[in-house]
Design a protein around this nucleic acid. Structure first.
Lengths: 213, 213
DNA sequence: CCATGTGAAGGTATTCACAGCC
DNA sequence: GGCTGTGAATACCTTCACATGG
């Protein structure tokens, strides 16, 4: 089933598998079965096998998957072998935390540029990255950075996104709590932290509620 | 179609609608059509109408939805009228940013307690919340807090989650990049920031790649 | 014998088209 | 005329069962 349209849900799970493989690799294991990976990441074994089957034959029947080979394969599918740098716009509390966040490294990603409008922040260096004036966003094209993380207030988000698109940015991770519009060719993933917390109470049965605020 | 099982995807979208309604309400509008809300939040109009239809008749044909009534209705469905307090565990870079994050207020939520294991942090006050020793997590039961946000390193996550479950926590928003296990009655939403960034390159067409790192 | 890979079945969510109501 | 609410149709994703290969 090598040539097929890839379900979006499969793409969403690929980084999860990659994370699980990286963690297993760090424990010195060489092969892993779909069942073992399933236990590690919390997805059904047959779902994992189906997902991998979209991309080709990664596994060996009776043995499982070679962790290093599979990890490389997923990195290539996700294009993490080619794209490694991201720019950050908005170095407030959340932006600073993202600059210091060690988790991107696992995927080969790093924040290679940071921007803010606040003159007091411009010129400061956080985690080896110098904060630049947001007016310099258009230099991203020459610097061959095609990913951006937006961590600015809602009111500024759409305008910043438009600057990023002009600067040749092709993918945006948006933390601003609002919809942002881009040309179809530019992919946006919006991640609203408060929204995630807000749907949690729904799953708490009424009988079990312990907190009323 | 008042009594029906609610699709999980619908529940996921409810906070999005609520956010859109809150923003519209702040602009002095009283009614909104499914089309206008659709434009505001980036979901199809028929999807919105279908979602609301699971819960009853919120709208008036020819007029639209009363924003205040609909917002209250969604808050009630999500149980945001009853549950307003959350505890934070792990006051590192990300945890501190979450403590300062103003976005929870829109949903009536607040971080009402914070814990860390680092003696240097314990006793400090951030945004009006005093950081307590993680050993005090079990006091959450008496304080009637049933939601928790976990922002600790991967290695500590499972152990912290178990303490939280013992303390009577019923819903967890997990930022640690790993699967955490809980009894079925405790709902966990894991939000791995790096994973979200990592699937963005997939959507960048090869021809358009401008960055290779 | 064990684990993968995959058509087919089953289930869930989205989209459509239009009846009903203001 | 305009907008909601919803059965029906469609598309999508998950789960199953088992053939296939080491």
């Amino acid at each position: 089933m090598r040539y097929h349209k890839i379900p979006d849900e499969t793409v969403r799970r690929l980084p999860l598998y990659l994370r699980g493989l990286m963690v297993s690799a760090g424990q010195g294991v060489e092969h892993i079965s779909s069942q073992a990976l399933a236990d590690a990441v919390g997805v059904n074994a047959w779902q994992i096998r189906k997902d991998f089957s979209y991309f080709g034959d990664f596994g060996t029947p009776g043995v499982g998957y070679n962790i290093a080979t599979l990890a490389k394969g997923i990195q290539k599918i996700l294009r993490l072998d080619l794209i490694r740098k991201a720019a950050l716009v908005g170095v407030g509390d959340l932006g600073s935390a993202l600059l210091a966040y060690p988790g991107f490294k696992l995927f080969g990603l790093e924040i290679a540029a940071a921007f803010d409008v606040d003159p007091k922040k411009i010129g400061k260096v956080i985690n080896g990255v110098e904060i630049e004036d947001a007016a310099a966003i258009d230099t991203l094209r020459q610097r061959e950075i095609s990913l951006a993380i937006v961590a600015v207030p809602r009111a500024a988000a759409q305008s910043i996104v438009e600057q990023l698109v002009t600067a040749g940015i092709k993918g945006i991770l948006n933390f601003a709590p609002c919809k942002v519009s881009t040309p179809k060719r530019v992919k946006v993933i919006t991640l609203d932290i408060a929204m995630e917390l807000a749907r949690l109470p729904y799953y708490i049965p009424r009988a079990e509620q312990t907190s009323e605020g």
